Amino acid sequence: MNIIVLSRNPHLYSTQRLVEAARQRKHTCEVIDPLKCDIIIEKKNPAILYKGRVLENVDAIIPRIGSSVTFYGTAVVRQFEMMKVFSVVESQALVRSRDKLRSLQVLSRAGLGMPKTVFSNYTKDASEVIASVGGAPLVIKLLEGTQGLGVVLAETNNAAESVIEAFHGLQARVIIQEFIKEAKGADIRAFIVDGNIVGAMKRQGKEGEFRSNLHRGGSAEIISLTDEEENAALKAAKVLGLGVCGVDMLQSSRGPLILEVNSSPGLEGIEAATKKDIAKSIIRYIERNV
């Protein structure tokens, strides 16, 4: 098969592993920057032009679309879909998962547990918002933040009011979430491929850091999920329509709480923690569907 990895950086660990896994299974694989694709819209003949050549005979694509290029990256994925090319992550599911507010609403409607969350449209009454999630300590997140950037832990109500007012002053939209103390600065990531959990790890923030992101210096170790955690992760992936994703959860006294669902999860941390060939699982997912 001819497989394309849509990635802006061919040197990233995840991109390299996907190419390596595809070639090991005797497929042709190419890395293409979605921002350098020209979309040709024509009746009954959609096409994509890349560096002066028309992309033809493509069997499948693996979108690795960064959050900063979601709009155009998703348009390229949609164009491939119009060309009857299989996508590991569908364009609509990609858009749905990138909108943090929308994805939380979808997860909530499906009955999944999550930290109590408030979104407001630049409210002037920050104290009321703070009270509605149970008061400080609480977590304030930028809607567009990734990898732990734009996430603040406010330990007092005054600090929370100041942060919320500062973000609003910058015209930055935020969500306010209750702080889950019993999680102790750790979260769980379940990696899902084609409706199956192919790996799971527990990420622990470094000392004095409540964010567990590996990019922020956190550590990871393999973990066995409980039945409740497995069911929550699988249901989250299903309701968002994602064939490949990372589901981030907190362990709490009231069961697993979904933090977010990542439609372009990195492979480095999960493969290092679990010693599993996750990239191969993604290629086999393509083989089953093309």
Rank of each mutant, 00 (worst) to 15 (best):
G241L: 07
V85T: 13
R216Y: 09
K275S: 14
K100T: 05
T74Q: 11
T15W: 05
R96M: 11
F71D: 13
E271T: 01
D99S: 10
D194A: 15
V239H: 01
D194E: 15
T274G: 02
D38T: 15
A186D: 00
I188S: 11
S264L: 07
A190K: 04
A237W: 04
L55W: 02
V77P: 10
L12G: 05
S212H: 12
E165P: 00
I3G: 01
G52Q: 07
V77R: 12
Q251K: 15
S68V: 11
G255V: 09
V239P: 09
K181A: 15
G169R: 05
P115H: 04
G205K: 12
H11R: 08
M83I: 05
Y285R: 04
D187I: 10
S252V: 13
F167N: 13
V5W: 03
N262G: 02
F119A: 10
G145S: 03
A136D: 01
I48G: 13
K36W: 03
L250S: 11
S224Q: 13
V163G: 03
P63S: 01
D277Q: 10
V77N: 05
Y122H: 14
I40D: 02
K276R: 15
L12P: 00
A160D: 08
Q171G: 07
A22Q: 01
K276V: 10
D277C: 12
E30D: 02
S219D: 14
A160F: 12
K238T: 09
R288Y: 14
L257S: 12
H168N: 13
S281W: 13
L240V: 03
R203Y: 06
D125A: 04
H11Y: 03
A237E: 02
K116T: 11
A183P: 11
N45T: 13
I32M: 04
R8W: 00
D125Y: 04
V5F: 00
G66H: 11
V193D: 09
P46F: 10
G145M: 04
L257K: 15
I62Y: 01
